[in-house]
Design a binder for these strands. Sequence first.
DNA 1: ACTGGTTTTTATCTTAATAAAAAAACCACA
DNA 2: TGTGGTTTTTTTATTAAGATAAAAACCAGT
Lengths: 307, 307
Amino acid sequence: MENPALSTQKDENLRSINPLQAELSHQLIALFIREGLTTGSALSERELAEKLSVSRSPIRAALKLLEHFQVVEPRPGGGMRLAMDSPALMRVEMTLPESPQDQLYVQIGQDRVQGQLEEHVTEADLLRRYDVPKALLTKVLTQLVSEGLLQKAQGKGWLFTRLIGCVESNKDSYELRRIIEPAAIRSAGFQPEPERFQACLAMHKQLVDGLVFETPHHALLNINAGFHQMLADFSGNRYFSEIIRQHNRMRRFTESGAVLYPERMLQSCQEHLDILEQIEARDFEWAATLMERHLGISSKGQLGVPE
Amino acid sequence: MENPALSTQKDENLRSINPLQAELSHQLIALFIREGLTTGSALSERELAEKLSVSRSPIRAALKLLEHFQVVEPRPGGGMRLAMDSPALMRVEMTLPESPQDQLYVQIGQDRVQGQLEEHVTEADLLRRYDVPKALLTKVLTQLVSEGLLQKAQGKGWLFTRLIGCVESNKDSYELRRIIEPAAIRSAGFQPEPERFQACLAMHKQLVDGLVFETPHHALLNINAGFHQMLADFSGNRYFSEIIRQHNRMRRFTESGAVLYPERMLQSCQEHLDILEQIEARDFEWAATLMERHLGISSKGQLGVPE
DNA sequence: ACTGGTTTTTATCTTAATAAAAAAACCACA
DNA sequence: TGTGGTTTTTTTATTAAGATAAAAACCAGT
């Protein structure tokens, strides 16, 4: 019934870290970068808690974790302060532990994409395969469900939606985005948020200027997803945002292992930049047209080129 | 913190019925109608189980339930046979018990739309409010999450997405559908399934012919949702289908209590029929244009007029 | 009126044993 | 080979109590 050689090895790390703390440590770093904090900036526990919509307890724990990684340090007189600048933060962020939930989530997603999991699975199968506590599995399944990647079968077991793990799915996804994204830009409610827009514009100028060749894979994918997400958010229509968010999430599985061709990435960034400049000039119609072209080209492009 | 006067009354029925059986009894009736079975048709347990993707055990239980409602009757020599024709089935279907899960699901959704539930709720709040077993609540929350109506907050509690329960949401939903539905019809993969299409066409002809004035509220909403769902399905793009499915689900909350104006319903059915006739003539481009117009009119129409 | 530190309260997670239900296998019969 | 009936196996649901972690309230110091 199941090939034991394919079974994923037990991973003791899957049990070790408090998921909320791990998640918050990542979010805190993203926050520090976003707010442009520099070495020595004082960090107010209450303010951080407020910004991330949690109470001070988990913030304190996450700061403790960051202290262990020397991202923050105790401040004389109490509290913490930042101990790094943004470039260092970006580097450290990748070495931070992932929550056990995230590990299992990515594992299951990739196993499914690689065909090591059938379309129909039972919880008991998964528990045997991954050897994790049942509660953790339940949480991950819930997460997959919330993202539309999995659904409960009638009776017993779970079904992966055919949204994931098949070739046609990718084509369909592009067709949808080619419709939604230009429509978002043309939407009556389209309204760029100045700071967010400028940050994205500046980043793309640097990338086109050559930074693209030095930026790690993982970061390029994030920037790319962020560009498309931002434009969808600017539409002011929650559904547009939500759809793009979901498709960005799915691309994590299919593209995280893909090869990126540097010259293609440069061209892609240039196209992004062209679109951003039209938006800055408030020619939304032309920006939308460029987006249609951008997505049209990409979908026919080589495997592994994300837009 | 919470106004006890607003608290929903305990409903003992919420605990009584096996959810899968209840769900299957509805699905069986839908199946009988869809397949055009008539009084006396023999029912094969294995065949039904196969068609609904479950094993024979729950099918047997559901048939027992249907026997109690005299929908089916024992056949001499063993097994069951259908004891009603389609019109009677449709009438009975509405009187069948709903699963406790569905009851709670609708209750929570409506309470949220009506503002009796805050955007942020904790499980403990909900357990106190509805007095249901924790496991049932968990299942319903999972369902709401899978439909994108609810999400887990960081730390404790749950957040209703602002997709539901606010005025703008409705506007956004129409904007999205005005983009997706015509695009589905124009999609290169658009391909009507003959039987399904003909059934829908015939139904609309009857409605326009006057049946609309005799059809109950609940059935009209279903026909309406089914029309839009069908066209999205014909696109062959899963994402289009999935998006329309989600929006139809949300409309259950906002529209199930709405007043339907008969003359407006007639006009709506006529518009549907026009679209269907263009599709039959294979002028998909014009059908898509009519759909744009149809959705454009509806969104400006009176409250409670669903499309 | 802030801050970080601390305590108290509350909510959720974990757990494991048991019960319930679905799936699968088996049967005899047409 | 198909049927319904029955039994066996496997999976999942249900609990309740205790452990854990988040939220909230409360400090004292600046």
